[in-house]
């Protein structure tokens, strides 16, 4: 059967990600969409260790390691340098985690987007600082247990709602903004290819479930990613040239069903699940409004 996504592989096997890692699929699909004329900048994160130690590489394209807070600045610099060399046809991609994007790298990201460089910023969102042992980030959803939000007797699970960086990027007026997730690779790849047509900054947030930090069995990675969309915990959208398109769930599930699929939420009681459901509904309504404006 003809494959539904490009056959070319630029990510090799033998990498050191955990079994069933969603972040690895995010990279695999992004590179399938962009092809060989691509350079990637990766800050401190799981993806900084997934390729293995020097002299090993798992990507068949150049990959630059950049300080944690500096992904945005690094892709600006790479773009300028490649343009001077006459390599304007190369895709420049920042590929950073949610900690490196929602928290520590937010100013650098915002600056690069504002300067208008022709770059991709891909945020792979595993909703926590996973590489250092599952600490909460701004992008961790309400209700989640992490090692810095341990439930214990005091019920110190994360009390704040998820900060959605893609929404911030839309508010900033970034020309191309989208959300995607690994359960829908065709949609993800199409979005990256649409982004490529935009000569300017583009930002894509990819939900990448993490069995190690969300505490679910590794074979469920695709299922959890799918449920995140179907429960509207992670709505998929595309915002391009001022037009906003929201994907309707095809087989809706409740937030309760979603949280029951992962141990990081297993402590949640009915009131807490309702609080989360209400926030999900509120955000969905606000996204629907964007569609009509």
């Amino acid at each position: 059967m003809p494959t539904s996504i490009p056959e070319q592989e630029l990510m090799e096997p033998g990498h050191t990600a955990c079994q069933g890692c969603g972040a690895t699929l995010a990279m695999r699909y992004v590179l399938k969409a962009l092809g060989k004329k691509t350079v990637v900048s990766v800050p401190a994160s799981c993806w900084a260790v997934i390729p293995g130690a020097m002299p090993n590489r798992t990507l068949d394209i150049p990959m630059v390691y950049t300080p944690f807070a500096a992904t945005g600045a690094s892709i600006s610099g790479l773009r300028e340098a490649l343009d001077i060399r006459g390599d304007s046809d190369y895709n420049v991609v920042g590929f950073a985690g949610d900690g490196g994007t929602a928290d520590i790298g937010l100013q650098s990201l915002s600056g690069a987007m504002e300067r208008g460089h022709n770059v991709f910023y891909i945020m792979y969102d595993n909703e926590g600082y996973m590489n250092t042992g599952v600490q909460r980030s701004g992008s961790t959803p309400y209700g989640a247990e992490t090692t810095t939000t341990p439930v214990g007797l005091d019920r110190n699970f994360k009390k704040q709602q998820k900060k959605v960086v893609a929404d911030i990027m839309m508010a900033q007026g970034v020309p191309y903004v989208a959300t995607a997730t690994i359960a829908y690779p065709e949609d993800l790849i199409r979005k990256v290819q649409n982004a490529k047509k935009v000569n300017g900054p583009k930002f894509i947030q990819i939900l990448a479930p993490c069995p190690t930090g969300w505490y679910y069995p590794p074979e469920k990675t695709i299922g959890v990613s799918r449920m995140a969309v179907q429960s509207r915990m992670f709505p998929l959208y595309e915002y391009s040239s001022g037009t906003f398109r929201l994907t309707r769930p095809s087989k809706p599930v409740t937030v309760r069903e979603y949280v029951q699929s992962q141990k990081r939420f297993s402590h949640m009681d009915e009131d807490e699940i309702r609080t989360l459901q209400e926030e999900v509904d509120r955000r969905w309504e606000s996204l629907l409004e964007k569609e009509t404006h």
Binding site: H15, P51, G52, M54, R57, P62
Partner: peptide
């Protein structure tokens, strides 16, 4: 442009 790291992780 080619990667500096020469060995594939296939090792």
């Amino acid at each position: 442009l080619v990667p500096l790291a020469e060995t594939s992780s296939r090792a």
